[in-house]
Design a protein around this nucleic acid. Sequence first.
DNA 1: TCTTGTATGATTGTATACAATTATACCAAA
DNA 2: TTTGGTATAATTGTATACAATCATACAAGA
Lengths: 231, 231
Amino acid sequence: MANYDVKSEVNDKFSLRGRVYHKIRDNILSGVYKENEELKEVSIGEELGVSRTPVREAFRQLELEGLIQIIPNKGAYVTGITIKDVEDIYMMRSKLEGLAARWATTNITKEQMEEMEENIYLSEFHASKGHMEQIAVLDNRFHEIIYEACNSKMLEHQLRDFHEYVLRVRKRTLSQFKRSSESTKEHREIMEAIKAGDADRAEEAANRHIVNAYDNMIKNGLKEIYERGLV
Amino acid sequence: MANYDVKSEVNDKFSLRGRVYHKIRDNILSGVYKENEELKEVSIGEELGVSRTPVREAFRQLELEGLIQIIPNKGAYVTGITIKDVEDIYMMRSKLEGLAARWATTNITKEQMEEMEENIYLSEFHASKGHMEQIAVLDNRFHEIIYEACNSKMLEHQLRDFHEYVLRVRKRTLSQFKRSSESTKEHREIMEAIKAGDADRAEEAANRHIVNAYDNMIKNGLKEIYERGLV
DNA sequence: TCTTGTATGATTGTATACAATTATACCAAA
DNA sequence: TTTGGTATAATTGTATACAATCATACAAGA
């Protein structure tokens, strides 16, 4: 009967196996590997200094995620995240982030609440100064806190993936001064609702936050890259 | 430059590689492999008549899904779907199925619409006769049609997984005569709304359908297996 | 008895070998 | 020139070999 510490080492980014998977995944999500590009096991292996075996294992995972497509006896081809995917993800997030905020309202720990408040304070500071790089990091972390606090493995896993899939778009839109301060304001609303224990208001605010982010994305900057296919 | 038929052979259930993955997955989801059970690469390989390599690749995929946990240099342990997971999935589905129905309203093809209508007719017949086995199959298919018709790779993939994860519970609750006829009635409402092109009504009906299924599940039969952990 | 160290076996991690399949090049025939 | 076929090369699929790590058993000592 197994009785190991469950928290540690699940698909660790720093273990060799995790490294190969994450490296390829990052290269797909960041656009290093482009749409329809063929990924050869030996080439990728050489890039990362490993043999075909760990690469193949990573390929299987990426296929399951839908980031690549493996055609038997032919090869692995980059699918990546298309503009359509990003739009769909935002619509799905606009339903699910609220649920996460709702659950976080009743499950958030004292430490998580404190980190969230600190996150808001810092974000407001950096937003006023126009420090876009820090804003992006804090924005990421804000959502991560909610995912962790919602106490649902399923929802956390799903939203974390979505969050990573749309990273490139988010970075672009958050680098707009106007949107970054709006976003921070919306984060505060969510935080206040969670702190007040008002799950309804937290859900509504979180959903609205994603809808606003989506609208902003559509208005600015998404259309111009529409033609290229991948984000 | 790759230019293959994209539809075919993605993680095919009948290719060797897909077979290993799906077989292990089914054994987890159906409860053949129990919670915390250790899965040994050689044993599983012998069961399926393959070497460690394909088994390891399947393990990596299952780990990504969260169905098993791999502890480096130790082993693979079944996580499976817990009661808590099922509850969470139903809440998430109650937000997402509506979205799928909404999108299906504008994207459904003539063929899909016809299959859906036929599905309802057959379901009503079998529901009145108490043919529970057929009801389960038709219920599955009804939701599958919506997933296919919603025209969103992301949403389809997600809902299909959820659907499979809660299969055991659904089979149990659908075997109740009362719920199966209620469910069929709700399916008809969704179908009528989609056919009428009323996306709002389709979304509302689909979400309510999942909420009803969830409530019924809580009332009947989920509590008694609560203690066992896995569904 | 309990603890600790060591040896042995079991299991996983990775690399490599071999088989099967597919892509490419080249030549011959129309 | 174009087409078709064959040989060769490249690539993937799977099995296996070897290394590294971990679990277990057992004995020695306190």
